[in-house]
Design a protein around this nucleic acid. Structure first.
Lengths: 260, 260
DNA sequence: TCGGCGCTTGAATCGACGT
DNA sequence: AACGTCGATTCAAGCGCCG
C-alpha cells in the first residue's frame, strides 16, 4: 500500500497516475509541462498541433483533479515565446475546465529600476528589433474550489514601513504578503545542462510553502513531469513526501541519484 | 484642417474618432480603458455584461486600427481583479481580431528580493486568505503587422556586465534591452484622487519612447480614454502632438488645465 | 510557368558567463 | 579586459508543393 510515496516512475504521467494513484491522495502538484514549442527532448516530440497539445493538457488536468485532495493546490508553470504570447493563457483557460484559477503568479526573471539603482536577474537575449526580451513566465495556481486558504506569510517579505509591525493582530512579525510578482533568478548553469527546461530550486519550494506545510502529516507532493527532480528535491528539503513521473530514463536516473 | 491636433474632446471616443479622425493619422495610441470591474466613474456605468464589454472593446479596436498608421503602435493597459485573472486575456484575444499582439509588457508595481536587499513599490493590500496581492497589470503592445521595429534602447537600462559595452556595433553605450517586465511604482497620492484609475506619468512616456520618437515630424499620440490627461501630458513632454477623448467634463477640465 | 504558402535550415545577433 | 560559447533565440532564404 502507498507504494507511490517517494517514488519516481519512468512512464507516461497520465497513464501512470491512472494506474498508481488513488483519488484525493495528493496535497500539492508543482509542474512545468513541455511547452510544445519545438524543444528537442529525447523522448518527447515537442511540437504537437496546438489543439492536440491542449487536449493533452486537459487530460492531464482532469487526472490531476482526481488525485488532488479537496483543498489541494496545483501549481502549473508555463511560459511564452515572444511571437505568441497568448498561448499560455489558452492553456490556462483549458485547464480551467477542471479547476478554478485561484492565483496567477508572475515569475519575473529579471527586472530593473535604474532610478532606484536596481538591476537584477539575467536572461538570454533575443535578437529582434520588434520583440522585447522575455523575462517572464506564469505560475498558475489552480484549486478545486477557488477558495483554498494559503499561507501567504510563509513566503512573506519584510515590511517597507516598519511601523506596520504589530499594527494589526496578524502582524506579529516583520513579514508582509509578497504579492503575485515573484522575482526568482535563474540559477546560472553553464556547460551542458542536464535538462533543457529545469526551473530554479526556489520555485517549487515557494509554491509548496505557499500552500502551507501543515502541522500534522507530511504533505504529499506530485510532479507529473519530474525531469531531473527539482520538485521532488524541494519537497524533501521541506519534509514532504513526493511522487514523480518522467518518461526519459536518463532524467529519472539523475533524479534518483539526486534524491538517493 | 487637422483640427484634432492638441485637442481634447468631451465625447464618446468611438463616435468621436469616427467623426473627427481620418484614416492613418495616428502614430501611437496609449490608453487604459474602463476595466469594467465596477469602478464608479461619474459618467460611465462600469459594469456592462462581459460580452457587451468585449463587443465594445472590439469596436474600439477596429476604430483604432483605422486611425493608426501602418507602422503605428497601440498600447493597451488593463489589469485583473484577483478573482478573475483571465479576463484581461479574453480582452486581448478579442482585440487580436484586429491587431497583432507584438509584445506583452508586464507592469510590475511592487517586487521584493529579500536576499538581494530589494523591496520596492507598494500596493493596496487585499485582506484575503486565498488571494495574493495583485501587483501586476498588462500593457499589451498591438500593431497592424506584428513586425513594427521599436526603439528598445530608448528605454534601456545599464548593462550588468560592463564588458559588453562596445563589444558589438550596436553596443555603443551602457544601455541594454530592459525586457518586458517594467517596474513602475504608483505615485503615492494622499487625499482624494481626481481620477480613480490614473496610471503613472512614466507609463505612457515609456510606451511612446519605446515606439520611437523618430527624427522628422513630431508623432501624434492618441488616448481614447484620456481621463485627466496623463497620456497627453507625456506626449507633450516628449515633443509630440496629442488627441484625447473623455466623456466626463470634470476630467476634461482638469486635463485642459494641466496642458494649457 | 509563375507565385503564394508552409516547412526546413542556416545565419546572425544579443547578453551573460566562464576562461 | 578580451574573447569564445550558447540559447524553451529570431529571421530570412531556400525548397517543395499546389493552384
Amino acid at each position: 500500500m502507498e507504494e507511490y510515496l517517494d517514488a519516481i516512475f519512468c512512464e507516461d504521467c497520465v497513464e501512470g497516475m491512472r494506474r498508481r494513484l488513488p483519488d484525493a491522495c495528493i496535497d500539492v502538484i508543482v509542474t512545468s509541462p513541455p511547452y510544445n514549442i519545438g524543444v528537442r527532448y529525447n523522448t518527447h516530440q515537442d511540437n504537437l498541433p496546438f489543439d492536440e497539445y491542449l487536449d493533452w493538457m486537459e487530460e492531464l488536468a482532469r487526472e490531476c483533479r482526481r488525485v488532488l485532495k479537496e483543498d489541494g493546490s496545483f501549481f502549473f508553470n508555463i511560459g511564452d515565446r515572444p511571437s505568441d504570447e497568448l498561448r499560455s493563457l489558452q492553456v490556462a483557460q483549458r485547464v480551467c475546465r477542471h479547476f478554478h484559477l485561484q492565483n496567477t503568479i508572475h515569475w519575473v526573471k529579471s527586472i530593473a529600476a535604474p532610478q532606484e539603482g536596481v538591476n537584477m536577474g539575467h536572461y538570454k537575449p533575443v535578437n529582434s528589433p520588434r520583440y522585447l526580451n522575455n523575462a517572464h513566465e506564469y505560475i498558475f495556481h489552480f484549486t478545486k474550489s477557488g477558495a483554498v486558504a494559503v499561507d501567504k506569510l510563509a513566503i512573506g517579505v519584510p515590511y517597507q514601513d516598519k511601523s506596520n509591525i504589530g499594527r494589526w493582530k496578524s502582524a506579529t512579525q516583520d513579514l508582509r504578503d509578497r504579492g503575485n510578482t515573484w522575482y526568482i533568478p535563474y540559477e546560472t548553469v553553464t556547460g551542458a545542462k542536464p535538462h533543457p527546461a529545469a526551473f530554479p530550486d526556489r520555485l517549487p519550494e515557494m509554491c509548496i510553502r505557499l500552500h502551507g506545510l501543515g502541522q500534522d502529516d507530511p504533505l504529499v507532493v506530485l510532479d507529473p513531469f519530474m525531469g531531473t527532480g527539482t520538485t521532488a528535491a524541494a519537497a524533501r528539503r521541506l519534509g514532504c513526501r513526493y511522487v514523480g513521473f518522467e518518461m526519459d530514463p536518463h532524467y529519472v536516473e539523475i533524479a534518483r541519484a539526486r534524491l538517493g
